[in-house]
Computed example of a mutant assay.
Amino acid sequence: MLRRILVCTAFSACLYFLLLYKSTLLHTPLVTTKMMRAVVVHGPGGPDALVLEQRPIPVPQSGQILIRVHAFGLNRAEMFTRQGHSPGVTFPRILGIEATGVVAAAPGGEFPEGAAVATVMGGMGRLFDGSYAEYTVVPAAQVKVVNASVGWEIMGALPEMMQTAWGALFISLQLKAGETLLVRGGSSSVGMAAAALARHHGVHVVSTTRNESRRELLLASGAHDVLIDAGSIADEARKRYPDGFDKVLELVGVTTLADSLKIAKRGGVVCTAGIVGGKWVLDEFTPNAMIPTGVYLTTYSSSVAAFMETPLDEIARLVDNGTLRIPIKSYRLDQIVAAHGAMDESTACAKMVVLIE
């Protein structure tokens, strides 16, 4: 009898805990982490360092915006970060300093869900994970609503490229109609964008390229004339334009800066705004020797504040209707290695954009 009582008691206890466990399962929702595709760099390297992975979708806090990315442009700054040249960057990191897409969540209520937006800089892809993913989280202060009804391929191409071109021309160089402009590094995406913008504003534009085969591309993008650049163009430029140029946009960087300063006329301005030449720092800088008398040297650096000033909607409409002719080449997210390879070799001859379906 005692044995039967003990067996029954044990059975009852097991049944009780089984029912309790079942009840817990029924009343406690399962928590699942939503995932996204993202391109991750685990350490400095070549294009093959870019690895397509599954990552948790980031969760925005108050003051942050979760953007579902539809398109993002590729930039040489990301190439330098991938190579390990951007100070302060830790790995692993999702690259990408710009993005366009729609608001997926805004805990602080800054933007309605579904609004089309663009964002650049502010630490994206360097201090925190950037846009090489299906979703990205950024501070609300660097997000801008876009109202132009254009495709994602066009909108994705514009934010960083156009804020650099527009800012360098109209903030740093204070370009005006009727002036002459030399774009050093004209076959870069920013160079072609700058030529198109300047010509649209009534400026005579001369662009440079190292490659004779790109002459027609530059003329089609907005340049009135093209100079072939073998590293020094000052003598040839002075033969063809004896008075020099009112403004010079230096996109190659410090490797050609001294030569570009010789091309500006008295009272002219040279703005350095790129590092296409791949070098960051001058070996020597003696202002009296390098800067001609009466020529002014300035710079332009991309920033959130400058991005907010850029008339992105207006520019997007001009690109969409063909007024500004900007060559664009698109890739899928799973083609990111090939895209970075083209950027390393400077073979794209277009603004490269990744589209995410």
Rank of each mutant, 00 (worst) to 15 (best):
M1H: 13
R3V: 12
A10R: 08
A10I: 05
A10D: 03
A13S: 07
A13T: 08
L18R: 07
T24Q: 09
L26M: 13
L26T: 08
L26V: 08
H27L: 12
P29L: 14
V31G: 11
K34C: 12
M35H: 05
A38M: 03
V39Q: 05
V39Y: 02
V39P: 08
V40P: 09
H42L: 07
H42A: 12
G45D: 03
G46V: 07
P47F: 08
V51M: 09
L52R: 05
P56C: 00
I57R: 04
Q61M: 06
Q64I: 12
I65G: 04
I67H: 04
R68W: 08
V69K: 02
N75R: 06
F80W: 04
T81M: 01
H85P: 00
F91W: 03
P92Q: 07
L95V: 12
A99C: 13
T100K: 00
G101T: 13
A105C: 10
G109Q: 08
F111A: 00
G114E: 12
M121K: 05
G122F: 08
L127R: 14
V137Q: 07
V137R: 03
V138P: 07
P139G: 15
A140G: 14
V143G: 07
V143T: 11
V146G: 06
V146C: 13
A148C: 05
S149P: 01
G151V: 05
G151S: 11
M155L: 15
L158M: 10
A168H: 06
A168C: 05
F170W: 06
Q174E: 09
G178L: 06
G186C: 08
V190Y: 04
M192Y: 03
M192Q: 09
A193D: 11
A194V: 10
A195V: 13
L197R: 09
A198V: 13
H200T: 13
H204E: 14
H204S: 15
V205E: 13
T209M: 02
R210M: 05
R210W: 01
N211D: 14
E212D: 12
S213K: 15
R214Y: 03
R215W: 01
A220R: 11
D225S: 15
L227G: 11
I228R: 01
S232W: 06
I233L: 13
E236N: 10
D243F: 00
D246Y: 02
D246G: 13
D246W: 02
D246N: 14
V248K: 05
V248Y: 02
V252T: 15
G253M: 03
T255S: 15
T256N: 08
A258R: 11
A258C: 10
K265I: 02
G267T: 07
C271E: 06
T272P: 09
T272D: 11
A273L: 07
I275P: 04
G277W: 00
F285C: 00
N288L: 12
A289Y: 06
M290T: 15
T293W: 01
G294M: 03
Y300C: 04
V304W: 00
A306K: 10
A306N: 13
M308L: 15
M308Y: 04
I315V: 12
A316T: 10
A316M: 04
A316Q: 07
T323K: 10
I328C: 11
D334M: 11
Q335G: 15
V337S: 01
G341V: 04
A342N: 08
M343I: 14
S346C: 08
A348L: 03
C349N: 15
C349W: 06
A350C: 10
M352R: 01
L355P: 03
E357S: 06
